[in-house]
Design a binder for these strands. Structure first.
Lengths: 337, 337
DNA sequence: GACACGGATGACAGCGCTGTCAATTTGCTG
DNA sequence: CAGCAAATTGACAGCGCTGTCATCCGTGTC
């Protein structure tokens, strides 16, 4: 019926243990033996039984990807990260499990414990915004579960992948400055998300570098949602000195800003330049198409998972890899009127 | 260290086998014993080891969700279905695995085989458009892997969940008819997707019921993408007798139609009514907001998974449940000019 | 009161692998 | 070529559970 390790052993005239060694890339197997065993495995299309492996050994060959489905960032973003993580897991013959963790509510630590007790993942991949939630990280360390993060805020000792969010925000504001804008507003994302802080910092840095003193009226709080973008924009348009450009901390809020501009009879980009962050599919579908920052989400998921897997498989300590962003200049930004 | 079944057995003064019976809801355990065992489990916070269970028994307690990441429908839709499936699996203490399967390319049957051989899922959940791909269904039956589908086209003997897509399409076209429209165009989705066919059928049915002969020029092929919506709309707008309303088979194409309307100087909804299908978040964020059909995706994922799990757990044969749609009338449709 | 019967319970082996440790072989050294 | 360490290989138990089958017990029957 099913080909077992023992069958391979018999075919290769070695003991089961030796086949196990080859299967797990262990040392102390002669090249000749290794080749013979690999050939037998190949010939018999041998598939190790994951349950038997994890029962007998100490590893589960399972990676869990954790995400927050409450303050959900764009689902496209998560879906792409998930695809990347999955790809990396497949390459290393690990399986992957996804776990939503509502950060609101106090039972999420219990849910994390349940995950660990029930499924024994060898490691987890953390996605924004739960990359920096201290109680969660603490629990993972207590439970001795290694993790890698996608775009963490705290970067000391963490492995995974980052993007230079601050630099990206700076680049987009510099783009607006180059178009002659001076009254540039910023709509902030959810306050305690790392992304919000870096993007705000980039905005401030670019403005300061251009010698423009910060006008508190031009920096308004949003919450990463379309509706919060609308609200923020209304606030901005009600100012006596309206901004000529708005940089929203994500595309959804930028869309809200464009909507509100319609309400106020402002033409984008003629009367108002708008830009976002993330390059969701939406950005290209808007009219006018949105100037924004693109990040390689899928790639980032893959890199984070790869770092984790390197660590799990004892291939060095794992790193925090930085990936490049790209400024997508489209039709929602133009020279100052 | 870890609490094992044996520990629970000792605490409840029964044999391990009896604890196993309770754990698996088997018959032939007296109520008194069952209660005692359950109490012990609870008190000791016992967690069965999934690997041990699946190694010893014949089940893996694993459900795989298959999706096509090539002709990817809106990722939001899939993400919601995934959340629903996951919720159902959690409730039944099954674990879930997601598997992208590129339908393009001929290796996807091999990828399916790999999935089954490597992970031994007890069952799979199929999402559009792979609910009706014959070779895949055949292979699943050959391999004896039960499946449930979300919105399958072939409905005989299949379990899972459906929505009355044809009825929904009819409803949205009737809405346009009620607004006085007569020249109503339809942009079709990818030809071999079930969704495309049902939606086209609903369009035809409503038009016929209103006594309007079908004008082939008003029915154009799209591919579910924004770009294909733009192309289709350009074709329609170039007609001598332009349509006064366009029903696109999904929101992305409807967005494309609105974009093209902008190019042609047509104001939506004043000069042209547009509606879509799916109610993606995008629909609410457009300006004007899009009239469309909402389906309870998350709920649908949960229902499909629940039917599968009922089957797997021997609770009857599983059904094909129909869920209601809801017509979301927003600002992109208005009385005929 | 002897017997049959069905429900409740338990003894035991084994699922397919890996950890431990012992046995064997190889390669060197002097 | 003896002698020894290192490299290679194997024997065996056991991971935590479930399937099979045997045993036990209470009840009803004549």
């Amino acid at each position: 019926m099913r080909v077992r390790l023992e069958d391979v052993a018999r075919a290769a005239s070695v003991s089961p243990k030796t086949v196990s060694r080859v299967l797990n890339d262990e040392a102390n197997v002669s090249d000749a033996t290794r080749k013979r065993v690999l050939a037998a495995m190949e010939a018999m299309d041998y598939r190790p039984h994951p349950s038997a492996r994890s029962l007998a050994g100490s590893r589960s060959f399972l990676v869990a990807m954790l995400y927050d489905n409450n303050d959900n960032p764009a689902s496209t973003y998560l879906a792409e990260i998930q695809d990347g993580v999955l790809e990396a897991c497949d390459e290393h013959r690990y399986s992957m499990m996804v776990r939503p963790l509502r950060m609101r509510g106090d039972d999420f630590i219990r849910r994390l414990d349940t995950l660990i007790s029930d499924h024994h993942p060898d490691g987890v991949v953390l996605t924004p915004p739960i990359t920096d939630y201290a109680p969660l990280l603490k629990r993972l360390r207590e439970r001795n579960v290694p993790y890698a993060s996608v775009s963490p805020m705290q970067r000391n000792g963490v492995i995974g992948v980052t993007m230079d969010e601050q630099g990206a925000a700076r680049a987009i504001v510099e783009h607006l400055l180059a178009l002659g804008h001076r009254r540039i507003a910023h709509v902030i994302g959810i306050a305690d998300h790392g992304a919000s802080r870096w993007r705000l910092a980039g905005y401030r840095e670019a403005m300061a570098a251009a010698g423009l003193p910060e006008d508190p009226a031009l920096v308004v709080q949003g919450a990463f949602t379309f509706g919060s973008g609308v609200a923020a924009a209304r606030e901005l348009f009600a100012l006596e000195q309206r901004p000529t450009a708005v940089f929203a901390a994500n595309d959804d809020m930028a869309t809200g800003v464009m909507w509100a501009a319609g309400e106020y009879g402002l033409k984008v980009p003629h009367d108002l330049s708008v830009c976002g962050f993330d390059d969701t599919p939406l950005a290209r579908q808007l009219w006018p198409a949105l100037t924004t920052i693109q990040q390689p989400s899928r790639e980032m998921g893959k890199i984070a998972a790869t770092q984790l897997l390197n660590l799990l498989r004892g291939r060095g300590p794992g790193q925090l890899v930085q990936v490049p962003f790209s400024l997508q200049i489209r039709d929602s930004t133009a020279r100052v009127p």
